[in-house]
Computed example of a mutant assay.
Amino acid sequence: MTAPDGSTLRITSLTALPPPGGQPVAGPPPEMQYLYGSGEAAALSVQAYRAMYSFLRNELGHLRDKRDARSVVLAPGSTIEDPRFYRCGALPQAVVLDIDETALLNLGFEADAVARGGGYDAARWARWEQTGADKVAAVPGAAETLAALRRDGYTVIFNSNRATSSAAQTVAALDHAGLGPAVLGDTLWLRGDGEASGKDTRRAKIAERYCVVAMAGDQLGDFTDLFNAPATSVRARRNLTSETALAPLWGAGWFMLPNPVYGSGLKGGLDDIFPPETRWTDPQEKK
């Protein structure tokens, strides 16, 4: 093909400019395109944060006595079938959030994952926690909502499985995204060395100090570890959220953010996701 200046153009199959090494950079997979790039995911995130704020304004804003507020943290001894909640009394009211992909988008880490390829690398994630504080962005709707909640008198608390050893860098990342302030051991709770990834122990400590009136997360474990019992099947786990006594909490104290990129929800075979009785066969293909 000849260009307007008379030079010859050669058409190739490249869909991206090659890096200095000469190999084309792979494009983001669909789940990353959705979460980090789509207007649809941004709208869902804004919707979740607006729903949280509206819930607190409508359900709690009119209370004359804060002791009438109800905690949304499950108390020790709770089961899915028999959920029990902490008593609030006169404790100050708080909202508890996960950090990663709930309040903070880890753009730098995920862009590196696309370029590098391969699976999750825990050591690489640890280095990201230590050095990536300025390569993040707030989840749409998060910064504005958290600022409004603080103005209304709620304490904003982050409960994350990031490492305690990265506390200073996590605070810096939150500040960079406009989500702070956060103080370790008070409004920031992180996983200690050797501590399991479940959050119930930390939630209990928070609930002893605060009346937690709302929680937000992108994984079921951000609300209770009961959802992640090892023997729970994929279909059973799905049903636990919608067909038990916990179902009324969604949108009324518990608020879920979208995350199709990673986490405990990304599992299940064909029969788990599409039960055999729901299968369809194109009539034209029937013999």
Rank of each mutant, 00 (worst) to 15 (best):
Y262N: 07
P18N: 11
V156P: 06
P76F: 11
Q33Y: 00
E208P: 04
A182I: 00
G77D: 05
L97Y: 12
A207L: 11
L257Y: 01
K205T: 09
A172I: 01
P83I: 02
R237T: 02
S242F: 13
S7P: 00
Y154R: 11
W254M: 03
L266S: 04
T145G: 02
T155I: 09
E129T: 07
S242C: 07
T155M: 02
G141Q: 08
A48Q: 10
G269K: 05
D186C: 00
Y49C: 04
T145S: 14
H176Q: 12
G217D: 09
T164S: 09
T224C: 12
D152I: 02
D222H: 10
L240Q: 15
P24I: 00
A196P: 15
R64C: 01
E129N: 10
G27C: 02
S71V: 03
A167S: 11
E31N: 15
Q23R: 14
Y53S: 12
E144G: 14
G217S: 08
P276Y: 01
G265W: 11
R151E: 15
L107A: 05
P19C: 06
G119H: 06
A115Q: 14
L270I: 11
V234Y: 13
G117F: 08
T241G: 10
A43K: 12
G22I: 03
N161M: 07
L240H: 02
K135R: 15
R70S: 10
A103C: 14
D225P: 10
L14M: 04
G108P: 08
A229K: 12
P275G: 09
W254I: 02
P4S: 11
Q23F: 05
G263A: 07
D121W: 04
G180I: 02
P230C: 10
I80N: 04
